[in-house]
Structure formats: structure tokens, C-alpha cells
């Protein structure tokens, strides 16, 4: 694949710009509905307004890690192997880590006024925290040096290894908490009986965060592709500098002399 093709975003400039506008509009609508129009909760009062961010952020985080897994499978599958999937996996994982961090922080800010604690050893919380570190490790692994191909393969396999761990972590943590704690202080955040405007606001939040995810994924992908491209060009330039002035043009003379002088110094 040529470098130029990768320099565009995932969605193409026009779709990308439209997504940006739609994301901004949805987020503004969410602010209006979440903070002004939706009534305060009967039991939790205003604190419940944090739910309109917390639940969508968690959804976006899981979506992001799901896309990372999917892209990793597509990368490993010989027929669909393309660096595009590797970059999508990396971009999605990073956006996912940001959303996971947000989910944890928002959960904490919500737990404190409602339950009186910053953190509960609830199965879902613990699983999310483990997920956060799991994908932080994945991102660090991606930063290891290596050729695009070796890095891609390594990262894709690591993503799948991390992914099969998620259900195991979830079940083990679930058992652990239900065995040692008879009744949980709280029931799951999402009360199925919420009505009207509140339910609408929550769905609006999910929509807004999904759009935010798509927008961020596209932008982050483009940055990864640009960096990848630049690395390739710098490598080529370094090789040219070693071999001597190639078909670089007029500026080649001075650059060539400097490179030559440097080469003379090195034993």
C-alpha cells in the first residue's frame, strides 16, 4: 500500500467533518437535556444526572474494546490483513482507555453522594478497572519498536489474549463478590423502570457518546496513519543519507556533503 492512501482519515474528509458537527450537536443536546430538562431523580436528586454520562461512557468504552477485538481478528485473518486494521485496533484501544478512565472517575463521583463511598468492590466496577489496566498494557505493547508487520501481529494477538480474559475476569469477580457479600448495597445503575424524559436523555447520551467515539476514532486513526507514514519517510531519508545523495534534487549537494563529512568521521 502506498503511504499517501493512508494519510486520509478513516471516514474521508467530508464524512469526518459531518460526524464532527453531529457529535458537537448531540453533546450540546445532551447537556441541555441532562442538566436542565430532565427532572431530578425522586430518590437520588440531582446526583443522578451523572448517570447520563457514566452509562454512555461505559457503553462507549465497551464498544471501543469490541472494535479493537474485531479489527485484530480482521488483521490476523490472512484475506483481510491490512495495516488499516492494525491502526484501527490501536486507535480504538486508546479511545477505549480514555472512556474507561472516564467511566471509573464518573462512577466514583456518582457513588460518593449516593452511596457515601468513592469505590465499591462491585463486580462490574472491578471488571472495568481490570479492563483499564489490560488495555493500558496493550497500548504500551504497541509502542515497542519493530517493523509495522511484527508490531501488528504481536499487537493483534495480544488484543485477542486480552479479550478472552474479559469474561473470565468478569465471572471470577462476580463469584467473589456474591459469595462474600450477601446483599449488595445498590442495584445496577440502569433501573429498567425509568420513564419519559429521563430514559430519553439516557438514550441521547448513548447516541452522543457513540458519535464522540466514532469522531475520536477517526481522528486518532488519521494521526496514527500520519505518524506511520512519517516514520517510513524518515527511514527512507536515513537510508538515502547513508547511501549518498540520491535523486533528491538541488538541495542534495549540501546535504550530501554534510552526510559525507559525517560518514568520514565515523570509523
Amino acid at each position: 500500500m502506498t503511504g499517501g492512501a493512508r494519510r486520509a482519515g478513516l471516514l474521508g474528509p467530508r464524512v469526518s467533518a459531518t460526524t464532527g458537527v453531529a457529535t458537537a450537536a448531540a453533546l450540546v443536546a445532551l447537556v441541555v437535556f441532562g442538566l436542565a430538562i430532565a427532572p431530578p431523580d425522586e430518590i437520588q436528586g440531582d446526583a443522578q444526572r451523572i448517570m447520563y454520562l457514566h452509562v454512555p461512557a461505559a457503553w462507549a468504552a465497551y464498544l471501543a474494546f469490541g472494535i479493537t477485538t474485531l479489527a485484530s481478528i480482521l488483521y490476523l485473518w490472512p484475506r483481510t490483513r491490512s495495516i488499516v486494521w492494525d491502526l484501527v485496533a490501536g486507535a480504538s484501544a486508546e479511545v477505549g482507555v480514555v472512556f474507561t478512565g472516564l467511566t471509573l472517575a464518573l462512577g466514583s463521583l456518582w457513588a460518593r453522594p449516593v452511596w457515601g463511598i468513592w469505590w465499591a468492590w462491585d463486580a462490574r466496577l472491578v471488571t472495568t478497572a481490570v479492563l483499564f489496566f489490560l488495555y493500558l498494557g496493550y497500548l504500551s505493547l504497541r509502542r515497542l519498536p519493530g517493523t509495522a508487520e511484527s508490531r501488528g501481529k504481536r499487537a493483534a494477538i495480544a488484543a485477542l489474549i486480552a479479550f478472552i480474559d474479559v469474561p473470565v475476569v468478569h465471572f471470577s469477580v462476580n463469584w467473589w463478590r456474591t459469595l462474600h457479600q450477601q446483599a449488595t448495597v445498590f442495584n445496577p445503575e440502569l433501573d429498567p423502570q425509568i420513564h419519559g424524559v429521563m430514559a430519553f436523555t439516557l438514550w441521547l447520551g448513548v447516541l452522543a457518546f457513540t458519535l464522540t467515539y466514532v469522531y475520536l476514532l477517526d481522528r486518532r486513526y488519521r494521526l496514527l496513519a500520519l505518524d506511520e507514514d512519517r516514520e517510513e519517510r524518515e527511514l527512507e531519508a536515513a537510508i538515502r543519507a547513508r547511501v549518498g545523495p540520491g535523486p533528491a534534487g538541488g538541495a542534495g549537494t549540501t546535504a550530501g556533503t554534510t552526510a559525507g563529512a559525517r560518514a568520514g568521521v565515523t570509523p
Binding site: 481490570v130 489496566f133 489490560l134 493500558l136 498494557g137 496493550y138 504500551s140 505493547l141 515497542l144 519498536p145 519493530g146 504481536r154 494477538i157 495480544a158 489474549i161 486480552a162 480474559d165 473470565v168 475476569v169 465471572f171 471470577s172 469477580v173 467473589w176
Partner: peptide, 25 residues
């Protein structure tokens, strides 16, 4: 997975410890 880099020693714990939480539990 982490082999082949000078940063391996510091990366291995970060990669491994979250994965083995079920074993620990």
C-alpha cells in the same frame, strides 16, 4: 510478546498482572 525490547522488564508486569487477576482470585 514483550520479548525483543529493552523495555521488556518493565512492560511484562503491566501486561501480565491484569490478565492473571482470575488466578489470583
Amino acid at each position: 510478546l514483550a520479548a525483543g525490547s529493552r523495555r521488556r522488564e518493565t512492560l511484562l508486569p503491566l501486561l501480565l498482572l491484569p490478565v492473571v487477576t482470575p488466578v489470583m482470585l
